[in-house]
Each structure stands twice: as structure tokens, then as C-alpha cells.
Simulated scan of single mutants.
Amino acid sequence: MSIFSDNIRFLRAKKMATQQETANAVFLSRVRYSKYEDGRSEPPYEVLIRISKYFNLSIDLLLTVDIRKYPLEDILHLPDNRIVLPVVIDREGNNYIEIVTQKASMGYLSGYSDPEYIESLQQISLPFLTNGKYRAFPALGDSMPPFKDGSYIIGKYVENIEDLKPNKSYIFVTLNDGISYKRFKQRKKRAVTVAANNSFYKPYDIPLGEIVEIWQYASGIFPEDFEPDHYENYNLQDMFLEIRKEIRNLNDKIS
């Protein structure tokens, strides 16, 4: 037996479907499907896709995670390319806010769909954040004041890219850049244009195929030494940064 065979047997039982009904749904004979459940055979890729869609569960979870350990109610079903989003809930059924620390962020791209990874994250609960799934990510660098190193940005999961609103801030999880916090500017045919609050950094495009997750800014957790009035000084800092940028461009032209 394998994790895959155990999973599809478990999922079929949850559906209260017979082997014949399941085999018909994925265009297989009952004998061939039963071999997958018994672990006597492994399905080819095209069959895996059909089984994944039938059970509405991603292929990576079907093959690598024993989902019998996790109630199906703890899995949030999503449209498009992301089929499931693992979540952590308390005994009353309330969603925890997982904190992706700077150390944990190094493995987020490989663990975002793994319930065991999500369950291992630190968790908090904020009563004023309801009606959605929230997660906290570390702020890095100086591109999005007033957030700085040591801050955490809490985002609300965005299910559909069409829900992005111009000039609103989002956490973009991408294959190339990992976790980044930027302001959404516009949607293009094959990309989205984003920009930093710090004008020293130029806007750039993120190809749609590189986007793994998007979280809309909901709140922030600041370090102990954070002083809100420093935010008013960023306009002055932006001016100096703009001067530095112009000098750099001038030097480039001269050289």
C-alpha cells in the first residue's frame, strides 16, 4: 500500500461512492481502478490529473500527505490552479493566523500546500480579523514603509486575481522572488504590474505563471522600537532617494 492508494480509498469512502462509480467518473475500468486503491499499480500522469480533479485535491497532496490525519473540513477549497489551502483551526472552529517567521519563510514555497508545514507554524488569534483566511509574513528591506525588518504584515487570502484593486497593497508569493509586499498597479494580459511605496524602486511586472499566492494587506505587527511618527518623515526620505536616483542615472549616462 502507498499514501496515494490509502488517500483515494479514504476519499472514495467520504464520497460514499463505489469503485465502479469512481472508475466511471475518471474513465477507467473498475478492475484497473481497484489496482490503484490496492497499491498493485501506479497511475500514469494523465490518470492522476483526472483523479485529482474528481476528488478536488491537488496531486502533490494525493501523493505525499496522509490526508486521513487531517479533517477535510480543515481544507479550504479554492478555484483556478490552487485546489486546496491547508488551514489550522481551534476546537471552536475558528481560524488561527499562522505566522511565517523569517526562518520559516525560507521553506514557504515548498511547504505552502503541506498541512504538516502549516501546522508547524506559530499561531495567533486576532478577534477583529474575521470572514476570511489570514496569514502573517515577515517584512524585509525598505521598499514598503512604514514596514521594516522585524515587522510582520498580516494578509487576507485572495481567491481570484480579478479581485485585486489598484493602489491597494498585497503580499505576492512568487516562484522567483518568494514573498514580497507591493502595491498593485494594473492587470495586464499575462502579468500584473506592482510598485513599492519607496519611490527609489521602479514598478515592475510579475508574470501570472509565477504567482503562487496573493494576500491582501489587513493589518501589521510592528517591533517594540517602532515609532509611528517616523512614517511622516518618509516623504523627506523619498526626496533624497529620488535625488540619489537622478544622480545615479546621470552617472550612467556619463559613463
Rank of each mutant, 00 (worst) to 15 (best):
A25G: 10
N249K: 15
A23H: 10
G132C: 09
Y70Q: 03
L11K: 00
I3M: 00
L208A: 06
A25R: 12
E224C: 00
E232F: 15
F226T: 05
K35R: 12
D6G: 06
K103C: 01
N160F: 14
R12D: 12
S143H: 09
I247V: 14
P86G: 04
A195Q: 15
Y181G: 02
N131W: 13
E46P: 02
E242R: 11
P207E: 07
F55T: 07
L63K: 04
A13S: 08
I124L: 08
G155A: 08
M16L: 04
L208E: 12
S199L: 14
Q237K: 12
I221T: 07
N95R: 07
F128V: 08
N81Y: 13
S5W: 13
A23K: 06
I206K: 07
N197W: 06
K53S: 10
L48E: 07
K15S: 06
S151P: 14
V194D: 11
F4W: 05
P203L: 10
I51Q: 03
L11H: 02
I154R: 01
K165P: 05
G209A: 05
A196V: 10
M16V: 06
N235T: 15
E246R: 11
I171R: 00
R82T: 15
M144Y: 12
K189T: 14
K188Q: 12
I83P: 00
Q19V: 06
D90C: 04
E46N: 13
Y96Q: 02
K35Y: 12
E119A: 06
R190H: 11
R135V: 14
N131C: 12
D38C: 04
A25I: 10
L62R: 00
F200K: 03
A191K: 09
G220Q: 11
I59D: 11
D74A: 04
F10L: 01
P203T: 04
D163M: 05
F4K: 00
L129W: 07
R135S: 11
I161D: 06
S180D: 09
K168I: 08
G132S: 10
Q123P: 01
W215L: 11
G111V: 08
N198Y: 06
L109T: 06
I214K: 01
R187H: 05
F55W: 08
I179D: 03
S34I: 08
I99A: 00
Q186M: 10
N233Y: 15
N233D: 14
F27G: 02
P138A: 09
Y152F: 15
Y217A: 03
R244F: 03
A218E: 14
N235S: 09
E116N: 02
F222C: 01
V192N: 01
E162P: 12
I179Q: 02
P79V: 09
